[in-house]
Amino acid sequence: MMVEEMNAPLLKADNLSKSFGGIHAVRQVSFEVPTGQIKGIIGPNGAGKTTLFNLITGFYAADAGAIYFNGRTLDGLVPHQVAERGVARTFQNVELFDRMTVLENVMVGRHPKSRAGFISAAFRLSHARREENNIINKATEILNFIGLSERAASPSTSLPFGLQRVLEIGRALATDPLLLLLDEPASGLNAGETRELGRLICRIRDSGITVVLVEHDMSLTMEVCDQILVMDYGRTLAEGSPRDIQQDPEVIAAYLGDEPLA
């Protein structure tokens, strides 16, 4: 139903609020992410962007408001349950599994789609072996998609930083998400790597996965996003297409400064 309906919201945040002590990190933020789009969330440091991700993925519980995903509330779910529902994410400071290979990192991402437990693993029961093969195949497929198959057996720490970010996206894709949340994926990347990343994000969207992107890098946001939400001091400042945002006087005055965006 939902998929057939054009631009039905996959994710809907309704009046979300979260404060830490006296700091209101997120204040009554509402927005929708339509299926199949790339949504950008921009704003200066401390605007509440990462807090928003942590609320959606169940790392924090909201003080008020609700989050609906795929027609159901995410209220009260903890991170692994949110992942099982089909929301995957990356982290601002690249959280890879440092003592694993590139392939193994992606294989961990298959966790919610597999079931083998201690017993079937310890005795190598046939269904666990089959499942393990499926995990390897799927992970290999994903490494091909993100262009890291030649580094499959390398330790993840041996990758240059830009590729570590790509690998983290690959691990998130392994969970077969409906929604992918990217927390500042371009930070620390050079211009060439950022363009490459932009193309990857578009390919992910084209494969049917909805993307939400928190970003500082304007070139990436303006280029790939269908819709942009601007946050400041935990509030929604503006929402619209990249063109609207670039021309929004309030955004220009309050956040971007007086100079118009390139």
Partner: peptide
Amino acid sequence: LSLNIVDSRVGRALRAIHDSEPAARASGI
């Protein structure tokens, strides 16, 4: 049994907890 556990979905999940618990949770563990 331990060698089997370590080289499995469960073993990877255990190592994932060690390396980054937030990433492990976000990966559905």
